[in-house]
């Protein structure tokens, strides 16, 4: 709780810096507009201004500072512009509207959740196999670890196009990319977790003449839960990134990734920023949900803090 004041201070400083940065970032366009509207600006003439740095120009024209916070297509939108856009596209638009961020967010979220579910179930199953079979461990595990050093996201466009050519469109290709991205963190974390019981504990199970099955369900599985949740948190964030990137090559029709791409095509900076904040809020909410589940589960298991 004692962190609230410092955190708020840091956030306030960031917002203040953001506002301050808006002035030099948008000053060139603001001065041009003011000149066209008949105001006196220094220096006159677009050519001379183009040569000038943004900060000297801003210092010479304090009268147009207000305009830098209210442009339609600013280079850097002011925080309140982004907040207004977020409010308008979430609360004031109908959910079914193509301009509603909730509509686009749901498209992305459904792909993320489906992919995350597939990826984590497959990851847990493979981890169980790896722990049980030494041959599987030795053949698959090095590849699973090596695959984490590879920028897997690069294959996203190919998966989308290939699946498109066999007739799969929309949700499933994105979910496959999401699943792929959450799969490997879950495998690696779960294997670590299932192996976490020490030799002492395994021996204890043996003295109770527990079968391999009993050891698995009563010792390895519970011991792996903290590790599982740690990798689920990484996995769900990775799934969201996968779904967003998966939306880029399809011609950007629907979803938060599509909002980012169309925004960058048409120079709609406010739209980009609001989509960016929407992804941030979505990511934070997803990670928070997994973290909440983790706390409840660990508490019921008696290992929570």
């Amino acid at each position: 709780m004692r962190a609230i004041f410092p955190v708020l201070t840091v956030v306030a400083v960031i917002v203040a810096l953001w506002y301050a940065a808006c002035v030099p970032m948008n000053i060139h366009f603001a001065v041009t507009q003011a000149e066209r509207a008949g105001q006196v600006v220094t220096p006159e003439g677009a050519r001379e201004r183009r040569e000038m740095g943004a900060i000297p120009l801003a210092l010479k024209n304090p009268s147009v500072w207000g305009d830098t916070f209210a442009q339609d297509k600013p280079r850097l939108p002011a925080p309140h512009q982004v907040a207004v856009e977020l409010w308008e596209t979430t609360v004031e638009k109908k959910v079914t509207s193509k301009r509603s961020l909730i509509f686009h967010g749901w498209i992305t979220l459904s792909a993320t959740l489906l992919g995350f579910a597939i990826g984590s179930v497959a990851g847990v199953l493979l981890a169980v196999g790896i722990v049980h079979s030494r041959a599987m461990d030795m053949s698959v595990m090095p590849w699973a670890i090596a695959s984490q050093t590879i920028p897997i996201l690069a294959i996203a466009p190919m998966i989308i196009v290939v699946l498109n050519s066999v007739g799969l469109q929309g949700l499933v290709p994105k979910a496959i990319i999401s699943a792929y991205l959450s799969f490997f963190p879950v495998v690696v974390g779960m294997v670590k977790g299932l192996r976490s019981p020490g030799a002492m504990q395994i021996d204890q199970m043996r003295t109770w003449s527990a079968s391999a099955n009993q050891t698995f369900w009563k010792l390895r599985m519970p011991a792996s839960v903290p590790y599982l949740f740690a990798s689920l948190k990484i996995g769900i964030a990775a799934s969201l990134v996968g779904a967003i990137v998966g939306e880029l090559p399809t011609g950007a029709v629907r979803g938060l990734g599509a909002r980012l791409l169309t925004g960058s095509y048409y120079g709609q900076t406010i739209q980009i920023w609001s989509a960016l904040f929407a992804t941030a809020i979505l990511a934070a909410a997803l990670v928070a949900i997994v973290a909440g589940l983790e706390r409840v589960t660990l508490k019921r298991m008696g290992v929570g803090r």
């Binding site: 955190v7 840091v10 964030a237 969201l240 967003i244 960058s264 989509a275 934070a284």
Partner: peptide, 24 residues
């Protein structure tokens, strides 16, 4: 105490999304 919670929060966000802005 102020920056670390913010940093932890931002580290979990899909930062690739800033790409269109930075390219601009």
């Amino acid at each position: 105490r102020g920056l670390m919670p913010v940093g932890n929060f931002v580290a979990a966000l899909p930062i690739v999304g800033t790409a269109p802005i930075l390219v601009m």
